[in-house]
Design a protein around this nucleic acid. Structure first.
Lengths: 339, 339
DNA sequence: CTGTTAGCGCATTCAA
DNA sequence: TTGAATGCGCTAACAG
């Protein structure tokens, strides 16, 4: 390995000068800079990051924590997409990304402790938000810079987070269904433990109320991302005396399962039932019918959280921020006008 | 930050002794170990990874390189799944994972150079294999430990790689179609630049030949993961005089698009046309119909590559390995028997 | 504008 | 079984 000393020797300067050249210190003459840079190039020199981190007490790296992976939900295209967004900002800022994919909550917590205590990273992005989450608590107690993608359970004024206005999105997309003449509208969501689900559901309820439509418990279902879950949801709905004519589904991936169940029941979308959902992953445009869905700008969600976090790591006094990424409804073919 | 010195002071030993306790050196008495460990716990001591890496000249971290992300193909659930597999092994080995998501080839190369030269990682996993790939060449020239998920373009005896037998899988799944009475079988694949596509396609051709079925160029289509690609493929196929009755599609995600196009043409699967594909991501079981597909064990692909790479980083003399992960055909509802 | 010195936190010689 | 000394590669005072 070629070190700063080798470069110094070859270019006939001291190691500290070389260090200054690396940092592009303005107090070094252009001449010596040129000389040193040539030597660096000739020798194929590259600074050792560990040595640098050690003295700088900063790593220019951030940790990204995926939700626990026992669940097939991790196969959601949401994740590669948000990783892309994060990666892009990190790259521009010359930061690195550590990824943690723990299976259990315990595993995740110990991993986070390891990277925090061991100074692996300067900050952490949480790709999930759960009620009473130990990781969140740990990070808060440590005063370690972090940002949640989604809404924090508690202390939301002191925790950085990047989110959509899921309530409004839920309300608006439900209202779209109402505007199209639907009144019997059901909601199918993922786990109640997740804030996304709750918020989108609240929006759904609000839209119903505003339109003077009575809400009904039988119309609100929570399922996992599994096939059987989707099946049960549809079976339940179809066993009802008054079947819904509209469906608000909290995730495109769930919609896919629902779509398929519906088809096996011979129920056509949108002719027999209309469906709207959330996320606008690539999937939603290649299903049949293509989904009317809320584009939540996943990439942007990732990019902004990285941005906020980097600011925070650079300036610990930066106040906690809440960033709301605008959404946009993408109208496609899964909704029918009721006359 | 609490350092090894603090622990030494509190427990009344020298820093080097503390260091030995951390390494669980057998030449330290149980008594002092106990004493030191207590001090570590009391103080909340955690070793600084950068200091350790600096002297150890190893990072216990590996870099995972995603394919260039300009393409929507990155939303393939393949990626979260393989990341899970890699993450699991890394976690058990107490390794960290460093993720790189570059947009362009250039960006990826410079990122890889950065992490290699800067000693960020001990090894690299390439999540793609392309013809004449600069990253591969760079890694090879540097003699840096790496493994390719897929098949290397060249030097495949000296490059570690973990792959499926895609040729055989392609042949077998095509044969399944043939066994079910199909003779007019088309192939729809992703980019020809990718080895997976080529191998699966060769298998398809081999099965045709073996069965004495004439292959025909009009039946072989390459498309991108985009909607329009799927559309054109289906349009082309349906414009033919003799339309195929069977489709071999090289990726579940592409299948989804094909399925949807087929439906808009009023072509039913499997009644009018049968379809088989590859990967067995979660998607493939919730489509309508559920897909008969080759389970390539994505998770295992990731886990094994991590394992091989760790071995290699620990012992540079370890010979290059080729690991073939077994596949398994999952029979579902997308194939019809022709009588 | 540049060199000298010191030290980041840790592991590892060499002594004892 | 333990301690003292040294150095990993780099940056940052402090001098000059």
């Amino acid at each position: 390995m070629v070190t700063i000393k080798d470069v110094a020797k070859i270019s006939g300067v001291s190691p500290s000068t070389v260090s200054r050249v690396i940092a592009d210190n303005p107090r070094i003459s252009e001449d010596t800079k040129k000389k040193v840079r040539k030597a660096m190039k000739d020798l194929g020199y590259h600074p050792n990051i560990n040595a640098r981190n050690l003295v700088a007490k900063s790593t220019k790296a951030i940790g990204v924590i995926m939700p626990s992976s026992t669940n097939v939900a991790l196969q959601n295209p949401f994740f590669p997409e948000i990783l892309r967004g994060i990666g892009s900002v990190l790259h521009d800022a010359e930061y690195s990304m550590y990824l943690s994919t723990g299976e259990t909550e315990k595993e995740i917590l110990s991993e986070v402790q390891r990277i925090v205590y061991g100074s692996y990273v300067d900050g952490v992005i949480l790709l999930y938000s759960r009620i009473n989450d130990k990781v969140t608590n740990f990070l808060r107690e440590q005063g370690f810079p972090f940002v949640i993608v989604g809404k924090p359970y508690d202390f939301d004024t002191e925790i950085n987070h990047v989110d959509n206005d899921n309530f409004r999105a839920g309300k608006e997309i439900t209202k779209h269904l109402i505007d199209m003449g639907h009144e019997k509208i059901a909601f199918i969501g993922g786990s109640r433990e997740l804030f996304v689900t709750r918020d989108r559901e609240s929006g759904y309820v609000a839209a119903l109320n505003e339109a003077g439509i009575e809400e009904c418990d039988a119309y609100r279902i929570h399922t996992e991302f599994l096939k059987s879950g989707g099946r049960e949801a549809v079976e339940h709905l179809m066993s009802l005396d008054t079947k819904p004519t509209g469906l608000v589904v909290s995730d495109d991936l769930i919609s896919l399962g629902i779509l398929s169940m519906l088809e096996s029941y011979g129920i056509r979308v949108p002719q027999d039932i209309s469906l709207v959902s959330f996320n606008n992953v690539y999937l939603s445009e290649i299903t049949k019918p293509a989904l009317t869905t809320v584009d939540i700008q996943i990439y942007e969600l990732g990019a902004q959280s990285a941005k906020v976090l980097i600011e925070k790591t650079k300036n610990k006094n930066e106040p906690a921020k809440r960033i709301i990424i605008p959404y946009q409804i993408v109208y496609r073919d899964s909704v029918n006008k009721l006359s």
